[in-house]
């Protein structure tokens, strides 16, 4: 078949990478051009707005695109889901609190909720402690930048990619076979029996949590490191002159100095942890009692068509995140008032 006839086929049948590339490149260009045109038009109208009420018109034009998208894409769905949580599987009949009764009487769902609580208890605390320790240990050391990059790097890797990386770390081969996973190899070198890390509850949840900690520690480390460097030198110096040992100065100077940052780090990681979905899905698919709410929500609504139960789980997750956000909103309000 000649090139000409290949070009005549629809792109899907061609399997031609170059064609695919050109087609998608074209799509991206068109998309960007259309977007640029829309934005240009908005700014043009804002520019030409009549003097009277110009501020209001300009304000509306600036805010409207984002607000409309958010109202349609997040606010309306959130309200709709909250309502759906009180309806049956197909969303047709009002059933009161039945979905919540179901949730709190099903042992598997209770395990799921419990797992989520374990995640949110462990990931933020351990990530923050390890990140803080590391930040202090390498502070002002040689090669601080490289050492930081190493721990920070997992932040750039997708949850799915991280799942693959750790699936290989946890790989298991029975006694008598050569191990392919580093963790079991270390156990064997130390004279132990290889373990099925991801199979045995409740420990398997901990091994999934390690993956999340691996990712989030870099985030904690970078922020805390910056905060430590921000503590005024005079205070640290004064503590030292007062005869404080490093441990005392850590508790009395460093911790108070970075308190605000610690709060930020913990709350941020908590929200990310409550929403965790990809790690569980890629590594155990929620089997062996490792499911978490975000994963179970997807399974209920989309795999099993139980939209009401899925919505109820979403609502529970929302309620769990709410206190964290309320706290942050209060901080935010204070700051805007100060400004």
């Amino acid at each position: 078949m000649t090139l000409v006839s290949i070009a005549g086929l629809p792109a899907a049948a061609r399997g031609d990478l170059l064609g695919q590339f050109l087609e998608k490149f074209g799509l991206v260009i068109i998309g960007l051009a259309v977007f640029a045109a829309v934005i240009g038009l908005i700014l043009f109208i804002a520019d030409k707005a009549p003097k009277r009420g110009r501020d209001v018109i300009q304000l509306l034009l600036f805010v409207a695109p984002a607000v409309i998208l958010l109202a349609v894409g997040l606010v309306y769905p959130a309200i709709r889901t909250a309502v759906l949580a009180f309806f049956d599987a197909r969303g047709e009949n009002f059933i009161g609190f039945d979905n919540f009764v179901w949730m709190f009487t099903q042992p598997t769902i209770l395990t799921t909720i419990l797992n989520t609580l374990v995640w949110v208890a462990l990931v933020p605390t351990i990530s923050t402690i390890v990140g803080m320790a590391y930040a202090i240990f390498i502070d002002k050391s040689k090669g601080e930048k490289v050492l930081k990059s190493i721990v920070f790097m997992p932040m750039a890797i997708s949850f799915v990619g991280a799942g693959v990386i750790w699936t290989f770390v946890y790989a298991y081969k029975a006694t008598g076979f050569e191990q392919t996973g580093i963790l079991n190899q270390i156990v064997v070198w130390l004279g132990g029996e290889p373990q099925q890390w991801l199979l045995v509850p409740p420990w398997n949840t901990l091994f999934l949590i390690i993956v999340m900690i691996w990712i989030q520690t870099g985030f904690a480390m970078v922020l805390i490191s910056a905060a430590i460097k921000g503590i005024p030198t005079e205070i640290v110096e004064a503590a030292r002159l007062d005869g404080a040992n490093p441990w005392q100065s850590f508790w009395n100077v460093t911790i108070p100095g970075i308190r605000g940052t610690l709060v930020v780090v913990v709350t941020t990681i908590s929200i990310a942890t409550l929403k965790v979905f990809d790690i569980v899905r890629a590594m155990t698919a929620g089997n062996f009692n490792t499911s978490v709410i975000a994963n179970e929500m997807y399974t209920q609504a989309f795999r099993q068509g139980q939209f009401g139960q899925g919505a109820a789980l979403a609502l529970i997750l929302f309620v769990m995140v709410l206190p964290i956000v309320i706290y942050n909103v209060r901080v935010l309000r204070k700051q805007r008032e100060i400004r």
Binding site: M1, I6, L9, R14, G15, D16
Partner: peptide
């Protein structure tokens, strides 16, 4: 490469 892939494309339609 492209040649191989194009061939694979042909064999399907042909």
């Amino acid at each position: 490469g492209i040649a191989g892939l194009a061939l694979a494309g042909c064999s399907t339609s042909g």
